[in-house]
């Protein structure tokens, strides 16, 4: 991912949006009023493919990068995922006048919020923020999955190391080196190599 540390644009169109928000597939479930039309135009400016849906479907599509949806009471039920496992970045669209429904906001867990009336810069910044938050969350979730797996594999690697040290009369470092070389040669993980060593040792007795 590219990070561009430039100063913030002060005027509309002063700078092209960063690649994170360009050419995305966007689902926009917004009311078909004048403001809604303006929002769609702003989203299209990001050169994204915008699909407009209204009324809010019972289940929003999940094959998209970003969902922009009115924060209505039925929105949590219409999201195609359970909380904590979003499949797209979510931007909640909120009315200007009513006091914000914070509980509803919490339940939808959006990555960014847009308030009516929309202005050009807020649409693009919300899009960028939502996309970045979503991707960051996904990377963190991926890291946790990987850590979980590593923790489990750790015991297996330790055991394989001990087997190698005993059967081949080599030291700890050499045992790790051996597993690393084998893993690279076969293009599989060290954990898989360790599993194979432990299993074959068991078969040989």
């Amino acid at each position: 991912m590219t990070t561009r540390n430039r100063s913030h644009p002060t005027t509309r169109g002063a700078q092209s949006p960063s690649s994170e928000v360009l050419c995305l597939d966007i689902v926009a479930a917004v009311r078909p009023d004048q403001e809604g039309d303006a929002l769609i135009r702003e989203l299209q400016r990001s050169r994204g493919r915008v699909r407009r849906l209204w009324p809010l479907p019972a289940r929003l599509p999940e094959d998209t990068d970003v969902i922009v949806a009115e924060l209505v009471p039925e929105l949590p039920q219409c999201l195609p995922w359970v909380p904590g496992q979003p499949m797209a970045a979510l931007i909640a669209v909120m009315a200007a006048i009513q006091p914000p429904n914070l509980k509803l906001l919490r339940n939808c867990a959006p990555h960014a919020v847009l308030h009516r009336p929309f202005t050009a810069n807020t649409v693009l910044t919300s899009l960028a923020l939502a996309r970045a938050q979503f991707l960051y969350e996904r990377r963190l979730r991926g890291r946790i999955d990987k850590l979980d797996e590593t923790l489990r594999a750790f015991r297996r690697v330790e055991r394989a190391k001990n087997i190698l040290m005993q059967t081949r009369k080599i030291d700890e470092e050499e045992a790790y080196q051996f597993m690393r070389r084998q893993a690279m040669k076969r293009r599989i993980s060290i954990s898989a190599i360790a599993a194979a060593i432990v299993d074959s040792c068991e078969v040989l007795g």
Binding site: P83, G84, Q85, R106, N107, A109
Partner: peptide, 10 residues
């Protein structure tokens, strides 16, 4: 594991 993400997020 199915309930976990829900209770973690909310």
């Amino acid at each position: 594991k199915a309930v976990l993400p829900v209770v973690e997020r909310l």
